[in-house]
Design a protein around this nucleic acid. Sequence first.
DNA 1: ACCTGAACACCGTTCAAGT
DNA 2: ACCTGAACACCGTTCAAGT
Lengths: 206, 206
Amino acid sequence: MAATESASARNARHSRDDVAETALRILDEYGLPDLTMRRLAAALDVQPSALYWHFPNKQTLLAELADRIVARGRPEATDGLDWVQRTRDETAALRDALLAYRDGAEVVSSTFALGLGASAPLARLTAAVESGGFDAETSRRAATALLHFILGHVSHEQQRLQYDSLGVLADGATPDALDSDGEQTDSFAFGVTLLVEGLAHHRVTR
Amino acid sequence: MAATESASARNARHSRDDVAETALRILDEYGLPDLTMRRLAAALDVQPSALYWHFPNKQTLLAELADRIVARGRPEATDGLDWVQRTRDETAALRDALLAYRDGAEVVSSTFALGLGASAPLARLTAAVESGGFDAETSRRAATALLHFILGHVSHEQQRLQYDSLGVLADGATPDALDSDGEQTDSFAFGVTLLVEGLAHHRVTR
DNA sequence: ACCTGAACACCGTTCAAGT
DNA sequence: ACCTGAACACCGTTCAAGT
């Protein structure tokens, strides 16, 4: 609870890295709506204006956070695997990375939509698909489809986590009793399967 | 340019419908970031507090806008078509509906994530898939995957439109020269194809 | 190299009171 | 039934100046 202040330096002079790490902590503890420049400044014992020496604006800060969130989304081993397994591993690793920070998917998808940060996951997914022998254009499109599905699914998932914990879930948000954590994972895997099998079939019929 | 004021009533007394329609006009003309409660009130020649008689908060207003945007997303004829064509038609109609309003995809996806509005497109997509003989759970999951892809793709597309018109496109946002309008449509169709073919193949192997 | 102080131009929301 | 007036508690960003 008091971690936000106690873990940060008491008397100014911060690096760009300090600022980003503190922002990530606020994001994870309080969520994206509470990650304001003023609140971040307070956590660093600094005036809001000081942040603008490190980052030109909030959007750039968020892009940096997106890059950091996504940086840990790498599968353990990729060599020796066929393209299907490689692609599955990449999607699972990315999902885990997004889930590791509160509102992680929203941060990444908002900066991805602007073409700012988070280009790493698209590159990794594209490479995984391309390893199956698909041409560059097809691979990029398939990777984009995978990425949109992942971001949409995990955003949805994290919003529900938040609203569940607040006890303010809207009517019909959880239509049946099957929506446990396991069901979420299966639902995620199912979407990935559709895209991957669609891609495999796409090659066969062409 | 002067349309925002001239088209709205000059002397107060508005209905909930007036408020929503004026909000849609501001959204379409100036975009989501400029759709503020204060600005909406000004366009209606009313104090900001007056809006809270019609809607309990901004989130509810946005959910109403999402429902209206999505309401026009219905294909011309659905009967006599096989499930593949029906599903394709639904996705195309939804895409068109989202593109009809500036930032339409963002409005819909933000309220969809909260489980608030925009349940109609999920229902329509689920029905289209279900017409192929898939069980309810499979259909709902496939429809969710389609919806995530559509919302992600169109959000991306609309952000680019906005940044293009501002001339502030980030480096690498348009990797090659192929990103014309036609390429966007093809890229959209490709993603839908992957999901639909994946679904068809999923039944065959089970 | 990094921060302060002070300001500018905004936000969403509440609530008593008016007609 | 629908709106005003006034306030509360905030925002992101700029910029001259300090050390």
